[in-house]
Structure formats: C-alpha cells, structure tokens
Amino acid sequence: MSETVTLTIDGKKYTAERGRTVLQVATDNGIRIPTLCHNEAIEPYGACRLCVVEVTRGSRTRIVTSCLYPVEEGLIVQTASDRVIRNRKMLLDLLLARCSENEVIKNLAAEYGVTQPSFRQEYWEKNDCIVCGLCVRACEQVVGVSAISLVNRGISKEPAPPFLEKATDCIGCGSCYYVCPTHAIKMEDKNGVRRIHNWKVEFKLKKCSKCGIYWAPEAQLEYIRRKADLPVGFFDICPNCR
C-alpha cells in the first residue's frame, strides 16, 4: 500500500509517495539539486551536504540534506533560496581549497561563482578524494565485499584498505572507481592486468577464449560465479561473444 503526500517545491505543488526523499522527488520532477556523495543504488549518507535545501514545516524553517529528508504532507521546500545558495557556495569553497585542481570540483564551484577559494589551497599530493564514502559504501552495499573502509577521523579520514596495506579482499571489480565523483581512484587495465593504485592491488584479467579480449578481472568473475553458483568455465567467453 503506497500512500501519497503533497508537498511544495520551489512554489509548485507535487504529489509523491511517502517514504521517498526530497531529492528523489525533486529529481523525478526535473528539479536539479547538486550532489557529490549520492548514488541511487546506494543508501543515502549525507556527507557532502551539497544537496541542502530549505524546508518549512509549520513555523519552523531549517536547512536539511534533501538526500535524507523524507517527504511529508504540506512540506514547503526551497531548493535555491539565498540561504541554500550561501551554504552551497561555502561547501564548494571548502572543497575547492582541498582539491583546487580537480576539474569536477572546479566546474561545480564555478557554477556557483566560486573561482578562488577563501582559504589556503591544500591540494596535498594531488589527492582528489573528498571523503564522500561512495567507494566504501558501493564495495559494502553493492558488491558485498567491504574490501575498503573509511579510516581515521576528522581531517585525516580517508577510504583505505585495512591497515593501509594491500586490499586483500578486493576482487578488482572497479565499482569504487566507477562511483567516485571526483575521479580520485586511479585504475588502469594494461597488458592483461588491472591495477587499482589506491588499494595497492593488481588483478589478472580474463581473456575471452573466442575474441581474445581481456574483459574482466578473474577474481571478480570467480566471485560472481561462486555467488551465483554457476558452472566452472562459465565466464570463459565474454558477454559480446556469448
């Protein structure tokens, strides 16, 4: 049984299913709210805060993250009020100071008129990571491997393999690489080998017995084969040749 609620977003009324978030409903209706730590396949987390909106319920107005805020009957949402923009600008200002040469951050910041950070630029070792945690959450929630996690706290928090050593549980699927919003994860496939530099791992790639292309890490295919209880040799042929 799905119940619906009516809410107002930027002056227009919308009906939405109860249980959905403000971000989902806004996106469904073509209203763009920027995010960096959100992915529909992964539980919302609320770390980057870019999706902040102003919500009014009764006499109370406050800033909330739309990726986590569930829609409610009578809720009034402003996705681009002065207060919202002010907060997003400061977030991008802070991120730009951290990753001053990252194209994604630079472009997003420029969209909000932030071209020079107000703070000292500290682009340490060209690290593009903004600690959104998507890589860690994808590895845990989507892949089911948890080869990496967020370690340390505060400004030193970062995604890393256990004890900063080689990620021994990693299967080389590259989900972390694909979900990373700032391309902070460095992965390359070369000469039949996949390397994910951030986790200090390398994997032999499987060669299609028909066309001869290297198409996926052997460890990943073995992981899927076992999980789905498929016969040995199932992945000898690539999807294109099947």
């Binding site: 805060r49 400061m90 977030l91 802070l94 100071a97 706290r153 400004i155 928090k157």
Partner: peptide, 14 residues
C-alpha cells in the same frame, strides 16, 4: 570531528 560531513571536517580546520 568524525570527518563524515564536509562543513565539520573542512570548516573547523579552516
């Protein structure tokens, strides 16, 4: 700071 959200992690440091 636990370091999860940007305002706290980056903002307090600044």
């Amino acid at each position: 700071s636990c370091g999860k959200c940007v305002p706290c992690r980056e903002g307090i440091k600044r």
